[in-house]
Amino acid sequence: MSHRILIADDHPLMRTALAQTIGQAMSGAAILEASRFDQIKPILETGEGVDIILLDLHMPGMSGLIGLMMLRSEHPAIPVIVVSASEDPVTIQRSIDYGASGFVPKSAPNTQIVEAINAVLDGELWLPDLPAAHEADTPDPAQRAATLTPQQLRVLAGIAEGKLNKQIAYEMNVAETTVKAHVTTILRKLNVLTRTQAAVLASQLALAPSPPTLME
């Protein structure tokens, strides 16, 4: 059975490496590509279907884990494997906790991405063999953000990037008053009092970018 696989990564060499690896191991697989987060939605809405998404957490427009949560909220039936230069256990565990079905470090041998794809397509989870994560016993900001709607997550992503309400409204093609209403709801759901506090919490989900590393 052939599969349609979307590679979402802003580095052309990384997309090429992944496409070649998948093409050699999975005969007949159709490879789709996106270099920005905002290119993913039009591909998923063509009606032709996508069986699995390989997602870079640091591609433009992602806002780290916020983008992952938005994608899983809008397209819960399509499994996502995070392919990231970040390899710390906390990032891996949070990716799984908030919707990913697998996680493959970009430094991993190319055989691992094929193993991960096959496992996830079979309905399993796939994780690298790394030490377990240990986090402080404090409320996870992603737990609070998980209650937000897709539109509210977009607003939160804008807040994390330091954008004004009018900038967010322009990008979302809605009225500024609508964005302000979303901000009020976001503050209530995140249990914070000010936009600045929401920005601080959101920044904990917008992971710092790491340098690209091609798979061996």
Results as ranks from 00 to 15, higher is better:
Gly28Pro: 04
Tyr170Arg: 04
Leu156Cys: 03
Met215Thr: 03
Ile78His: 11
Arg154Phe: 08
Glu87Met: 15
Ala29Met: 01
Ile113Ser: 05
Leu205Gly: 01
Arg188Pro: 15
Thr184Tyr: 14
Ala85His: 11
Pro128Tyr: 15
Arg144His: 13
Ile159Val: 04
Ser86Met: 12
Ala157Ile: 01
Ala30Met: 13
Thr147Asn: 12
Leu193Asn: 10
Pro105Val: 02
Pro105Thr: 09
Ala133Ile: 05
Ala145Glu: 03
Arg154Gly: 00
Val155Cys: 01
Leu156Thr: 00
Thr196Cys: 04
Arg72Asn: 00
Thr185Pro: 07
Leu54Gln: 08
Ala133Asp: 00
Gln39Ile: 14
Thr16Ala: 00
Ile113Val: 10
Ala100Gln: 06
Glu33Trp: 01
Ala34Met: 10
Leu32Gly: 02
Gln24Arg: 09
Ala100Leu: 05
Glu161Thr: 07
Ser63Glu: 13
Ile78Asn: 13
Thr213Leu: 14
Asn165Arg: 11
Ile168Val: 04
Gln197Trp: 09
Gly67Asn: 01
Ser27Met: 14
Arg72Asp: 13
His58Glu: 11
Pro12Gly: 04
Val200Ile: 10
Ile53His: 03
Thr111His: 02
Pro128Ile: 12
Leu127Pro: 00
Leu201Met: 07
Ala181His: 07
Asn173Gly: 12
Asp9Gln: 02
Ala116Phe: 07
Thr21Glu: 10
Leu65Asp: 02
Ile5Trp: 13
Gln152Pro: 04
Thr178Gln: 14
Ser63Met: 08
Leu6Met: 08
Gly64Ser: 01
His75Trp: 11
Val104Lys: 00
Ala19Val: 11
Asn118Phe: 13
Leu68Gln: 08
Thr213Ser: 02
His182Glu: 11
Val82Tyr: 04
Ala142Arg: 08
Asp88Pro: 06
Glu74Cys: 06
Met1Ile: 02
Leu18Met: 11
Ile113Gly: 00
Phe103Ser: 02
Pro12Ser: 12
Ala133Trp: 12
Glu33Ile: 06
Asp97Gly: 03
Pro150Arg: 05
Leu214Thr: 03
Arg154Glu: 10
Gln93Phe: 15
Val80Cys: 06
Asp122Trp: 13
Pro42Ile: 13
Glu87Leu: 14
Gly99Tyr: 04
Pro150Lys: 02
Asn191Pro: 01
Val114Asn: 05
Tyr170Gln: 11
Arg72Lys: 10
Pro212Gly: 03
Ala146Cys: 04
Ala175Tyr: 15
Leu55Met: 15
Gln39Gly: 04
Ile96Asp: 05
